[in-house]
Design a protein around this nucleic acid. Structure first.
Lengths: 180, 180
DNA sequence: GGGTACATGTAATCAGTTACATGATTTA
DNA sequence: TAAATCATGTAACTGATTACATGTACCC
């Protein structure tokens, strides 16, 4: 009586990259891979970086799955413009409606080096810490610059605030490490 | 006339996973993949997770590169035990001596969903935020439990403190999102 | 002595990265 | 008009993930 369902056919297992693309195309309206690349590089790319080639490859996959529709210019650069299909909008909406259980990953090579600091030479850890302080200060300055733009959508601003908080925390943390 | 060189032979380009394995074997002394797995799961695996199959595959690669030495039991389970070679210890030391320029990656699906919150239904974002508060509270409790152990090596404890700080920040952040 | 959790791996696939390539615009 | 730089992709490789498989010890 229970309906037979093949779970893997039902959910072709979209990756985070897939949802980034769906979300950006949804927020932007029709756009090219290059448009995506530009916006990513000053927004979510700070948290979740990936090379621009992904922003060319992923829309192709999503188009095959029927979640995006592609239109290619016939003249000039023959740019490919993507837009959400109804199925794509639904997939994005379903994903947004479902709370997340995957824990946060903080991938930071300086933290890895700190973790193994007992095996480093004297002074190495302090140097790493000073370097990290500088890097996080620069990153904080970038975020503050972006935050000066008053036209940012509310949720994106909230996300940016998380970034600001994180950088302040990281600066304080690494200062503590640097000064022993 | 210019000497033919294959650049990839010169720098075999170790990945972060490689250094995690080198660092763990260095810190532990000789150990099996399973030993690595166990320790990772209560330490650096919180920040930098990977499946246990990596901890079987990576030592094989490192052994081929001459950075680890493998010894296999001849009886019973025929476990493979790995230890650092001098070259391995040197590679680890060089890496630790070199400050890091790669920025931190904060990979968090809840943050992604927040970023695209404008396209979600009413209440979705608040639900995501409440879920995230719970998850970070649980994670904080885990970290506090680990921190009660007084025998942790100093650098590893420092790393844990970063985790504690991050979780406190995340809880406050998501509480702010949840209450609008 | 049967089940269940721990322990130890292998195989296949694929997303993601790196590197390459080239056309269009702008600028000096 | 030469040289940068912007824009737009493709190809190849491989590390990482997923899934499978099986042996061993313990406990009820």
């Amino acid at each position: 009586m229970c309906p037979v369902r093949s779970p893997d056919v039902v959910s072709p297992s979209l990756t985070p990259t897939s949802y980034v693309v769906l979300g950006l195309v949804g927020a932007f309206g029709p756009c090219t891979s290059y448009n995506l690349k530009q916006f990513v590089s000053v927004s979510i790319g700070y948290f979740w970086p990936f090379p621009h080639s992904q922003l060319y490859a992923e829309p192709v996959r999503l188009t095959e799955l029927g979640l995006l529709k592609e239109e290619q210019e016939t003249t000039g650069r023959k740019r490919r413009t993507y837009k959400l299909t109804p199925a794509g909008r639904e997939a994005l909406g379903d994903w947004l409606a479902e709370p997340n259980d995957e824990p946060t990953e903080i991938r930071d090579l300086s933290v890895l080096k700190l973790f193994f600091g007992a095996q480093a030479e004297d002074g190495d850890v302090a140097a790493i810490a000073r370097h990290a302080v500088d890097a996080h200060r620069r990153r904080l300055a970038e975020y503050e610059q972006i935050a000066r733009n008053t036209g940012i959508e509310a949720h994106q601003r909230k996300t940016l605030e998380m970034g600001l908080e994180f950088e302040r925390m990281a600066i304080a943390f690494w200062e503590g490490v640097a000064t022993q």
